[in-house]
Amino acid sequence: MPVLEVGGTHVTAALVDLSGGRTVGEVVRRPLPAQGTAEEILDGIAATAARIDAPAGAAWGVAVPGPFDYASGIALFEDVGKFDALYGVDVRAELSRRMRPVPGALRFLNDADAFGIGECVVGAAAGHERAVCITLGSGVGSAFLDRGEPVNDGPLVPPDGSAHLLSYDGRPLEETVSRRAIRAAYAGAVPADQGLVGDVPDVPGVPDASGVPGVPGVPDVHAIAELARGGDRDARAALEHAFRALGVALAPWLARFGATALVVGGSMAASWDLIEGPLRSGAGTGAGAGRAVRLRFRAAERAHDAPLLGAAAWAARPQSAAVAGHGPHVG
């Protein structure tokens, strides 16, 4: 089953063997010009797809961040900092015209949903009737899954099935739980006259190392995690505050949805040793107090290929299957 995963800065193409729960052959990952023209972006995706040995007429699973009309294949990116040139473009039609061999179908789904489905098929959520899968990176992505099917509306899930629309302490959740928020919290906790902020080396690949205005040299989250492990109290406090806040925000929805597993993936999941405790503590507040005891807290088992496996599983379903899609995902 051929699949594409479109990220904010890259596109990945692969062939997936669903029966074996694995990718087959080379997984091709190429940079994508998120700020480029529509032609540059679409040509880049099609060129990456051509690098794998997909059969003619195959149904492709395509995992794409939102905002996106997944049923019609039309991009709705606008003022989200990526792919703005695709706004209103019929991506299904344009890719079908560009891809060789010509696909039989392009079945789109939200990238966070693809991750969640993948973890349900062969990962940390396997065997759980209801699971919530979270991705932590530049923001908070989420998938609420009932027997492997994404649930994106109704009274049991947050609006649009999207955790990033939740709030904490009267503010949007991502102002507390995100790469930018954690770095800003750490920067604010370290007095400038201690010299620690300026003395921390810039993170390779991060322009001016911060993304936190006016504070040069702020370490990235993985470096803050290392500082926390080394005994830096401010680093540990910044991480504990963020992940406990995530648990508090999710607690009522975990209870309402009846989840038995909470799976965390994304770039921050590598710091699971620092995430699990505060997350579990936060999820045990209020309405979630009793359920948190029975809830399984798990780091993603297929962090690198879960979205590819999920996209393949989605493409293999009957065309009449419900469309998996919700609002903007910035994780």
Rank of each mutant, 00 (worst) to 15 (best):
F297H: 06
F297S: 03
A259D: 08
S210F: 05
G230V: 01
G205I: 12
E240P: 09
V248A: 05
A249S: 13
S267R: 14
V264D: 00
R298T: 07
S281M: 03
M268R: 00
G230T: 03
R296W: 05
D202C: 12
A292G: 13
G282H: 00
G231R: 12
R256W: 04
G211H: 07
A235V: 04
D202T: 11
H241E: 14
L227T: 07
R233M: 12
G265I: 05
L250M: 08
S271N: 13
S281G: 02
G205N: 11
A228F: 06
A283I: 08
P278M: 09
A242C: 07
E226M: 03
G205L: 11
A269G: 03
F243M: 04
D202A: 15
A269Y: 02
R291Q: 13
A209G: 14
G265C: 03
H241F: 13
A300L: 08
A245S: 11
V218N: 12
G211S: 11
G231S: 10
R294Q: 14
F243N: 05
G214F: 06
A269T: 01
V212P: 10
G286C: 05
G211N: 05
R280Y: 06
T285A: 11
P213D: 12
A242F: 06
V212Q: 09
V264R: 03
A300S: 14
V203M: 09
A228I: 05
P252Y: 01
A300K: 02
A242H: 08
G284E: 06
G282A: 01
G265E: 04
R291L: 15
A261D: 03
L279C: 01
L295S: 01
A237F: 01
R236E: 03
E240W: 04
L250Q: 04
A251F: 01
A228G: 10
P219H: 06
G231V: 09
D234S: 15
P204N: 11
G217S: 08
W253S: 02
A235H: 03
A270R: 10
E276I: 04
R229W: 12
A225D: 14
G247V: 10
G266L: 09
A235E: 03
D273M: 02
A242I: 09
G265N: 10
I275K: 00
V293P: 05
A287P: 14
V264E: 02
E240I: 04
A269C: 11
P207N: 02
E276H: 03
V248D: 01
G205H: 10
G277R: 02
V248F: 06
T260G: 11
W272D: 01
P278C: 09
H241C: 07
R298D: 08
R291K: 09
A228V: 10
V221H: 02
V206F: 05
A299G: 15
P252M: 03
D208E: 14
R244K: 13
G284P: 06
V221N: 00
F257M: 06
A242Y: 08
G284Y: 04
E276D: 07
P278Q: 10
A292S: 15
L227V: 07
M268E: 01
G217V: 07
A235Y: 01
G288I: 06
D234C: 12
V293I: 14
L239C: 00
A255Q: 15
P219M: 06
A300Y: 05
